[in-house]
Design a protein around this nucleic acid. Structure first.
Lengths: 106, 106
DNA sequence: AATTTGCGAAAACAAACGGTTGCATATATA
DNA sequence: TATATATGCAACCGTTTGTTTTCGCAAATT
């Protein structure tokens, strides 16, 4: 079973859950209220997110609060890093083109 | 058919293709040589990546060069933005803790 | 003109995914 | 103790995914 962070954020519901939990820790029932599916479906998403360590559980009586492990999100940022330089460079090149156009106007 | 950039980068082969094409434009056969699958499998990945506008084709005779539309990658960065503030804040808090520990040492 | 090469598209298939239903377990409450 | 609540887990189901195989087409080569 493939279970990495990229597969985790591929699902729009899971991305919404991540965004929700970025604000505050919540219980499965609390989370499920925000969506149009069953609690069990949400529970499955929570399991996937927990398995790739994007979420952590905090048991509190019979309730389980899930909170976001924000540090894990940096893995995506890290992967993106190799491209960031590239698209910034292209931007610089575009800037060059634009300033040249400006020059030629004069 | 869901076809967004998050689903596109969910597959490790597709991520590898993206990384490859970040260096230089390549043909399907050229790309396939780097992997342990058939050209047709790669071709399907290329179709998916092209459909969500991560790649663009450049026909050259009977060859087709695929090149990365690096700007599209910024969409991931854009989504990540809402969390970046968060994890940087947590870092600042950690810095505070560390500097307090330093103070107490004195 | 015939053949080779580079490519995409369709069909087929096992595996994975996302969802629902039903049930088991643990904690709170009457 | 009996009941209600919060949750996880297994079984099942239809759909999607990733791959291979086969085919067809267009451009290059002979």
């Amino acid at each position: 079973m493939r279970r990495d962070i990229f597969q985790a954020i591929a699902d729009p519901t899971r991305r919404a859950i991540i965004a929700l939990l970025a604000m505050q820790a919540m219980t499965p029932n609390g989370i499920a209220e925000h969506f149009d599916t069953t609690r069990q479906a949400i529970s499955k998403h929570l399991r996937i997110l927990t398995e790739c360590e994007l979420l952590k559980q905090e048991h509190q009586g019979r309730e389980i609060f899930y909170h976001l492990e924000i540090q894990k999100m940096k893995e995506i940022d890290k992967w993106l890093e190799q491209f960031r330089k590239l698209w910034e460079t292209r931007f610089d090149q575009l800037d060059d083109v634009l300033s040249n156009l400006q020059k030629n106007k004069k």
